[in-house]
């Protein structure tokens, strides 16, 4: 007879993964705030406003990915595996912020 599936993982793996997503969201917030500060530093031209909006959108995108994943991880004791699309989106937000930094360097 197979052992019964426990209602919660004794190693708290989903919780730890959820907290890892929260930490990553915080890091993304810091990077996005620095990006917005950089854009405003250049003055309040229309270009700077576009830049601030873009960094805000990137941050919102990351927030959405993290939120969906956190919802999945809170769902039960055996959450689904992270999808490739979510992983690509998270990495894409990071790359977008970096490209944005390069654009404002010059």
């Amino acid at each position: 007879m197979p052992p019964p599936v426990p209602a919660r993982d004794p190693g708290l793996q989903p919780e730890r993964t959820r907290l890892a997503w929260r930490r990553t969201t915080l890091s993304c917030t810091v990077a996005a705030v620095l990006a917005a500060k950089q854009a405003l530093h250049q003055g309040s031209s229309p270009l700077a406003l576009v830049a601030v909006t873009l960094s805000g959108l990137v941050w919102l995108g990351f927030l959405a990915v993290a939120h969906r994943r956190i919802q999945t991880l809170s769902g039960g004791a055996r959450p689904r595996v992270l999808g490739v699309r979510a992983a690509l989106a998270a990495a894409g937000c990071t790359v977008a912020l970096a490209c944005f930094a390069v654009a404002t360097l010059f």
Partner: peptide, 27 residues
């Protein structure tokens, strides 16, 4: 799989920190 995911997230945080460092050097 979840451990793999956390490792992935740790690398993403490293990456975000490097990008933030790039902004910080400039500012």
């Amino acid at each position: 799989s979840l451990a793999n995911e956390r490792t992935f997230l740790a690398w993403i945080r490293t990456s975000l920190a490097l990008v933030g460092g790039g902004f910080a050097v400039d500012q």
